[in-house]
Write a protein that binds this DNA or RNA. Structure first.
Lengths: 251, 251
DNA sequence: CGGCTCGTTGAAGAAAATCAACTCGAGTGG
DNA sequence: CCACTCGAGTTGATTTTCTTCAACGAGCCG
């Protein structure tokens, strides 16, 4: 039941093929492109290379990463089935993209992509939406890396992962396609800390690991609370604002 | 000589007024707007509010920040004279903007701004360039927060700050308009660690603090090396790529 | 001058990294 | 089918780094 082969992570990408062919949707631009198969670990594009193509994940998971000196790697984002990456109008890729699991991806030329968007009043808002979503994610990640502790980081990751890899028909059971090193490099921690933190969450009965690559969420509410996101604008919050020298009259 | 009042941070914004009135330049869109004076600490716009305006810093420094629960603040970016912010096509602001020092800013309506860009083949690339620069900065910040230690963070900050606030006529002398708490919240550390790290850099003769808000860079080359950025794509680097499971045939 | 904020420094503590041993499970080959 | 191997993951012990708490000092303003 838990025997997962290399190819076992094709789940949750179901909606992509069924996407409506209306040209309102950025996905439709990839409709004609033949999906390529990318084996796990193989690179799709390289940081610094001229950004010739825009990609869509049809199946599997892709990591976007940067390498900085002395073997340090930062994963800036994961891309799941349906996600489009490389669409930012940069001249060169800001990241190396690699398949986390065996993937199928589609690609189209960047000029074609941008041209279609420029020529369509319907696509432009969708494109802007994509850019916004990406920036928002980047900001969220900055907050995570800047202010959250190990447990909050991991919980945030799981909550973010849930809608992407939760098994339909088995709610609460997450697939975790990436290995511990990937998670660590995404969350700015070490594999040991990732491992320990998962164990700790298991100990307090918030999740139950089922093999290396599956995790059952026992108490989603609790998991959300452990993310360290302020949902309530409370008094404490205001005090700090003042302490930081803001004269904002919010309180 | 080092007596800096509240208003003393208007430097380095010299080029803005003199910007060419050609419509090639995004700045020209702000040409008609009257500069508003914003006292230090005052907010310019709020996170979550409808993004009604786009702003340009005419003079001074602005911080873009997010508050998350329990008094935690993250500064996602500083904006200096000439910089445009709030231009991202989000419906709502992703950050609260506050004046670090007394500022003069210009604002124009978001719809006007985006309309002008949509209507001009010359402005669109400039706008795209702005978005790219911002994303690139966000990625750089993720790397910093994810993998750099205190010293590397501070050095990176100083190197980034140098071209913005270095006093013309006195090369090597940086103005540091923001206080220690701002720097700490930008770099994901505490004021104490910021202070200690500056002292340490001073001890090894890389910089010399001159008062609270000025810093002389003694050895810029050394400072750059201490940033922890990989400039060389060295062997070590490749080994790690392999270790991380990449089959990339770079080596 | 005195009070105040901001910044610095020291000492103690906590969190995560590092180093190292061990476990588990998947794949291999007899 | 079972033993073996190897890599990934876990767990423990130790160390490092940064935070936290606390005291002190310097500049600024009335």
């Amino acid at each position: 039941m838990l025997m997962l082969g290399k190819n076992a992570f094709a789940v949750a990408g179901l909606a992509v093929e069924a996407a409506p062919p209306r040209r309102l949707c950025l996905s439709s631009l990839f409709g004609t492109a033949l999906p390529e198969t990318i084996p796990a670990g193989k690179a799709i594009c390289w940081e610094g290379d001229p950004a010739g193509c825009v990609f869509q994940v049809a199946e599997g998971v892709v990591r976007l990463q940067r390498i900085i000196g002395e073997g340090r790697r930062v994963i800036t984002a994961f891309q799941y089935a349906g996600d489009i990456f490389g669409a930012f109008p940069q001249r060169n890729y800001l990241f190396t993209a690699e398949a986390v699991s065996d993937c199928r991806i589609r690609r189209i030329g960047r000029n074609l992509f941008l041209g279609e968007i420029a020529g369509s009043d319907a696509l432009r808002p969708a494109y802007m939406g994509l850019l916004c979503k990406e920036t928002e994610a980047a900001h969220e990640q900055m907050v995570l890396l800047s202010k959250k502790n190990a447990q909050e980081r991991l919980c945030s990751f799981l909550i973010e992962l849930a809608p992407r890899t939760e098994m339909s028909g088995n709610p609460g059971l997450l697939q975790i396609p990436m290995n511990r090193q990937d998670i660590a490099d995404y969350l700015g921690m070490t594999i040991e800390t990732v491992s320990r933190t998962i164990s700790k969450l298991a100990a307090i009965q918030v999740v139950v690991p089922e093999g290396r690559h599956n995790l059952r969420i026992v108490c989603r509410q609790r998991l959300k609370e452990l993310c360290g996101n302020a949902d309530a604008f409370n008094l404490e919050n205001c005090h700090r604002l003042v302490r930081h020298g803001s004269t904002a009259d919010l309180c």
